[in-house]
Simulated scan of single mutants.
Amino acid sequence: MKALLSGAPGGPETLELAETDAPVAGPGDILVRVRACAINYPDVLIIEDKYQFKPPRPFAPGGEIAGEVVAVGENVTGWTIGDRVIGACGWNGLAEVAVLPARNAFRLPDDRDFTEGAALLMTYGTSIHALWDRGKLKAGEILLVLGAAGGVGLAAVELGKARGARVIGAVSSEEKAQAVRDAGADDALVYPRGPLDKDASKALAEAIKSAVGKDGANVIYDPVGGDYAEPALRAIAWEGRYLVVGFPAGIPRLPLNLTLLKSCDVCGVFWGAFAARDPQANAAHVTELFSLWEAGKIAPKVSATFPLERAGEAIAALGARSAIGKLVVTLD
């Protein structure tokens, strides 16, 4: 089979399309003919050995796939050859065939295509866990989403509106701001590209305060980090919840005196660990996501597709923070 392999630590330019042996479904696994593989920020990190998991090389990046079951391992029930499936495989998704733990697999409805299906699970799974479980978002509250035009950002915008919140998206360009408004955000704020000096940080804090209103944001969803974290935290409401989702702009150092002054919580969000520790709760979230998808309240935004041989370009675009919504690699 063909796979896009990482043979040594490095950027997307180090990936090589190669022929390799197809994997075998072990106990508890299903084997999937991959039709689409979504690109996510962990793919940027994992090939550089900067992710929390370091698979043995050679391996293919790509942790979120959609396709058809071609084999079923021992001790697996409920799946048969030919079933349409989406799931989180961790890595090795950028290949013609991939192993998927059955506990991470969900049935793709017949009326949804593989490209959309591949773009659903990680972004919306992360965001629903963040907003429902960690942020305790309620109807009528104010939600500020940083990096709101990215995959998890747009998912958070849609889910926030589905929950009945007032949603403000913060982005780095007017093009991204329009994408956020199109996704249903009540307002969009364009912030400058970092790094931010002291004056720029103060100005951004004031701009965010103006956008969220005098009482501040009840929930702040931050998949960006870096110099944007402190200005956002300064705009949080009394007893607000600051959700730490990711760090493509760098790991910030928050002044903890702000958490005391606002009596607010800083909450880590690690969807993968949540899904592994509480698969029933995660499955309930996925069921809710399918219902929201069917009702038209959420819809994966795939801005571009790439063939397998050009998947490195998709990873590079995500690393450069230039993508809007999701990028998906398709395999026909």
Rank of each mutant, 00 (worst) to 15 (best):
R277Q: 15
T287W: 07
L292Q: 03
T287D: 12
C267N: 06
K301C: 10
H285Q: 10
L261E: 04
A276Y: 12
R253C: 11
A275E: 06
L256Q: 09
L292C: 03
L254G: 09
S291V: 01
S291D: 06
H285P: 09
K297S: 07
F247T: 08
T259P: 04
V269Q: 02
V286Q: 13
I298M: 02
F274K: 12
A275G: 08
V302A: 05
D278K: 14
G268Q: 03
L256W: 07
N257H: 05
Q280P: 10
P252K: 00
T287I: 04
A276H: 13
L260C: 10
C264T: 06
N257T: 06
L258M: 10
H285R: 11
C264K: 01
G296Y: 08
L258D: 06
L289N: 05
A273H: 14
P300C: 03
F247N: 10
P255S: 05
Q280E: 14
W293D: 01
L261T: 05
L261A: 03
L261C: 01
K262L: 04
A299T: 12
G250Q: 01
S263F: 14
G296W: 07
D278S: 10
D265V: 15
W293L: 08
P279A: 02
A249L: 14
T259K: 08
A281H: 02
W293N: 00
Q280A: 15
A283S: 08
I298Q: 05
P248W: 01
R277N: 12
K301H: 14
A281S: 08
S291Q: 05
K297I: 08
T259R: 09
I251A: 10
P300Y: 04
L256R: 05
G250D: 00
K297V: 07
A281M: 04
L292N: 02
A295P: 04
A249V: 14
I251N: 02
V269W: 01
W271H: 11
A299E: 14
F247H: 09
E294Y: 08
K297Y: 09
V302P: 03
E294N: 10
L260Y: 12
A283D: 05
